[in-house]
């Protein structure tokens, strides 16, 4: 096994417009991921989610992808047959999506959905699977697990649905988890408990985590390393705890535009985008 869980070099993702021109969305992205928590931050449209989706091979069908290297463990994701990719997605890679309203099956009870997720990878009896569902729902701090087990997604709150989605991914115990804004829809208090769960998994199970978020403070607190993306490129790579020492004006702008509890009441500084950032040199992948 290589020392890197994931290796990406020169990833390009584009979309064809009506005239057939290729509009780039991710331009020459390179990074590696070990058994760690890597944060990807940036505004919407900066290509963070596309990067996560490219790893799983779940980009929209009209996306045009190329890379000089894209691998997970020892599998080349660019050339592997789709059956193998499907196996990887079932067993080893998981993704938590941002919006639980669209990612849960609306006509299937919560418990059955999680059982389905378990039985994809693990052919165990229904009774055992049911026990596992109760355990994982408790682990994501759902109070009345027996009731939630029998409910449909529309009967639970947004925060609860998000935790169910997280439970569904964690129950398979993946080696790589891509979490796309997993806590944006949650209250601060619940957010903390979800982060604790993810944190424990990385430590105990030696999992690799890609944490996509627009919340810089959260990422700097939670992750080990952060890539800051602007318009499909990495403009800065930082040790997460040093986020507040960021040099790039884009990163600084993103930090300064957030109101704080005790901050000034003057108008908030607004991010001024500089066209020269687009040409910014690609910062090398983390060693």
């Amino acid at each position: 096994m290589s020392d890197h869980l994931v290796k990406v070099s020169d990833l390009q993702i584009g979309f064809k417009n009506e005239e057939g021109e290729l509009i780039p969305a991710v331009r020459g992205l390179s990074f590696t991921l070990g058994r760690e928590k890597l944060g990807i931050v940036g505004e919407s449209g900066s290509g963070k989610s596309l990067t996560g989706r490219a790893l799983l091979g779940v980009l929209p069908p009209n996306a045009v992808v190329s890379a000089s290297h894209l691998s997970f463990e020892n599998t080349d994701l660019l050339t592997a047959p789709s059956a193998e990719l499907r196996k990887l997605r079932g067993l080893k890679m998981g993704m938590i999506l941002q919006d639980p309203k669209y990612s849960l099956n609306p006509i299937m009870k919560v418990g059955n959905q999680i059982i389905e997720a378990i039985q994809v990878s693990n052919k165990i009896s229904k009774a055992k699977a049911k026990k596992a569902v109760f355990d994982i729902l408790e682990a994501v701090k759902i109070r009345d697990v027996k009731r939630v087990y029998k409910q449909y997604p529309h009967e639970v709150s947004g925060g609860m649905a998000q935790r169910i989605m997280i439970a569904m991914m964690l129950v398979r115990k993946p080696d790589l988890l891509i979490a796309d804004e997993p806590t944006s829809a949650l209250d601060v208090t619940v957010q903390e408990s979800v982060l604790d769960i993810l944190d424990n998994l990385v430590d105990e199970r030696n999992m690799g985590l890609i944490f996509i978020s627009h919340d810089l403070n959260l990422v700097s607190r939670f992750c080990d390393r952060v890539l800051v993306m602007y318009s499909g490129q990495v403009v800065e790579e930082l040790v997460a705890s040093k986020l507040h020492d960021a040099k790039h004006p884009y990163t600084r702008g993103l930090i300064n535009c957030m109101p704080t509890l005790n901050g000034s009441l003057e108008p908030l500084p607004v991010l001024k985008r500089d066209p020269s950032w687009l040409g910014a040199a690609q910062i090398g992948s983390g060693k």
Partner: peptide, 15 residues
Amino acid sequence: LDASIQAEMLNLLNE
């Protein structure tokens, strides 16, 4: 909204 857009919106609301 994104943090950067949130700042613009909050400033606008105050103005």
